[in-house]
Nucleic acid binder design. Structure first.
Length: 109
DNA sequence: CTCTTGACTGGTT
DNA sequence: GAACCAGCCAAGA
């Protein structure tokens, strides 16, 4: 992983399976920047200018709250995409968050 | 160059 | 369970 920190984030986010979600902090921790969870959020902000499709809707905060919904095309886009993938979303809160949570340490080894 | 802001988190009150 | 605080680092004014 000699790429940019942001690129690592994007690569990891792209690996998240459909219908699953993870948290900014979990991504940061997996990349060795456990205390830099804010950078993950900033990376998502940059994902707009990325050429590839970044499923940023599968990344939420540790509460399972769709804190970044407002940064999508419309505030409903994030929840809509998640529901389309089978994730139950109650308002801005993901139901059964523990069940749909995707842990890179477990899933990737 | 300094100051503010933020798609966050963990601990404490 | 809600509210507050401190640590973290990058971008923009």
């Amino acid at each position: 992983m000699d790429k940019d920190f942001y690129q690592n984030i994007f690569d990891l986010v792209k690996v998240i399976p459909s219908g699953r979600v993870t948290s900014y902090g979990q991504i940061a921790k997996y990349l060795g920047a456990a205390r830099s969870s804010r950078m993950v959020g900033w990376a998502m902000n940059l994902s707009h200018s990325q050429k590839e499709d970044i499923p940023a809707h599968r990344v939420v905060n540790r509460n399972g709250l769709l804190t970044g919904k407002m940064h999508f095309e419309t505030p409903e886009t994030m929840a809509a995409l998640l529901r389309a993938e089978g994730v139950v979303v109650n308002g801005d809160q993901i139901e059964n968050f523990k069940l749909v949570f995707w842990d890179p340490f477990i899933e990737l080894g």
